[in-house]
Simulated scan of single mutants.
Amino acid sequence: MVDVIDWDLAVRVGSRLAGDGPDVGPDEAAEVVAELREDAARSTGLVRDYTGLDSPDNTAPVLVVDRRGWVQANADAFSIALAPLVDRVTTKREPGPVATAIGSRVTGLEVGGLLGFLGGKVLGQFDPFHEPHGRLLLVAPNIVHVERELGAVAGDFRLWVCLHEETHRVQFTASPWLRDHLFAQITALADTMDVTSLLDDGLKRITDAVKGTGQTGSLVDLVSSPEQKEILDRVTGMMSLLEGHADVVMDGVGPEVIPSVEAIRKKFDKRRKGVGTLDKVLRRLLGLDAKMAQYRDGAKFVRRVVDKAGMSEFNAVFAGPENLPSRDEIHDPEAWIKRVL
């Protein structure tokens, strides 16, 4: 198989662009790492007690990483997630023309630029594609940077972040079918993609989105058929649910263990609206306010269902893919309740 992306180059470029982060001495760095590990471990029980979801022990390790570590981890995850698309490209064209048309170094530079930008923004992330059960990444320098920027109580903010990210870990490990379902959607979308359009337009749209140039720059512009839109709607519904659920949990558990949670949430929501953040790039890439909408609409859906039916009934969403809310149901919880409950 032809390597259409130079992943080593992408990691080097991404790491260089992301930088090291805030100035933190060795003693403080060791303290931050230790506290984040403790908070992640503590969050497991808090999330379990609040949600009723129970993930098996000794699955999906928690890693506290620097920005380079996050870039490397995501290059690894992208190489797996993009495998169906790469397979489609390389089987539709001869190796020579593919290498000429795309250029692994060119694509490596483009992906590295994207990873470098995001590597300075992301606080934490669950990587569902890491074998065998995924892994949770906490990006220590970014957490320190944001808590300083917000003027938040460090211990409170770190636990708050861990609660959100640990919820994602529990979601995927308590319901292992989620990973296979997500990968199946990626594969299905790749199978419907027009190779020529991807080669000619895809990378340019990504580049325009990151730079804020051009008239479009949206990956959604490449998704036009009813079948593709149906797949994208399923993914949007799933991701809205998972992100909204994590937001509800972090705020629901928060008052019991995080004295300053209300102040943190207020400041953090204001920061999410800031220009030049991760959310703005994702909005461009997806052609809509996708990430913010996922948090906002998903949280509204979760709260409505829990308020009406209770947490244990809400957990039916994790029973199987047929119980996931559609994109329309995210905006109409009553429809999901009627269909599933």
Rank of each mutant, 00 (worst) to 15 (best):
Ala101Ser: 15
Gly124Ile: 06
Leu136Met: 05
Thr167Leu: 10
Leu163Gln: 01
Val161Ile: 15
Val161Lys: 00
Leu115Tyr: 07
Gly112Asn: 09
Leu123Arg: 02
Gly119Phe: 00
Val146Ile: 14
Leu123Cys: 06
Glu166Ala: 09
Glu131Ala: 12
Arg158Phe: 06
Val139Pro: 05
Gly120Ser: 13
Leu163Ala: 06
Ala154Gly: 15
Val146Pro: 03
Glu131Thr: 13
Ser104Gln: 13
Val146Tyr: 13
Gly124Ala: 10
Trp160Thr: 02
Arg135Val: 04
Leu114Ile: 11
Ile143Ala: 01
Trp160Lys: 04
Ala140Asn: 01
Ser104Pro: 14
Leu137Lys: 01
Val122Gln: 11
Trp160Gly: 00
Gly120Met: 03
Glu166Arg: 07
Val111Leu: 07
Arg148Gln: 03
Cys162Asn: 12
Trp160Ala: 03
His145Leu: 15
Ser104Ile: 07
Arg158Tyr: 10
Pro132Arg: 14
Leu109Lys: 04
Leu163Asn: 00
Thr167Trp: 08
Val170Asp: 09
Leu137Glu: 02
His168Arg: 04
Asp127Thr: 06
Arg169Val: 10
Glu110Tyr: 13
Lys121Asp: 09
Leu109Thr: 10
Phe129Asn: 07
Phe157Thr: 04
Gly124Ser: 11
Pro128Val: 00
Val122His: 07
Leu137Ala: 02
Val106Met: 07
Arg158Ile: 02
Glu149Ser: 08
Ala140Glu: 10
Arg105Ala: 12
Cys162Tyr: 04
Gly103Tyr: 09
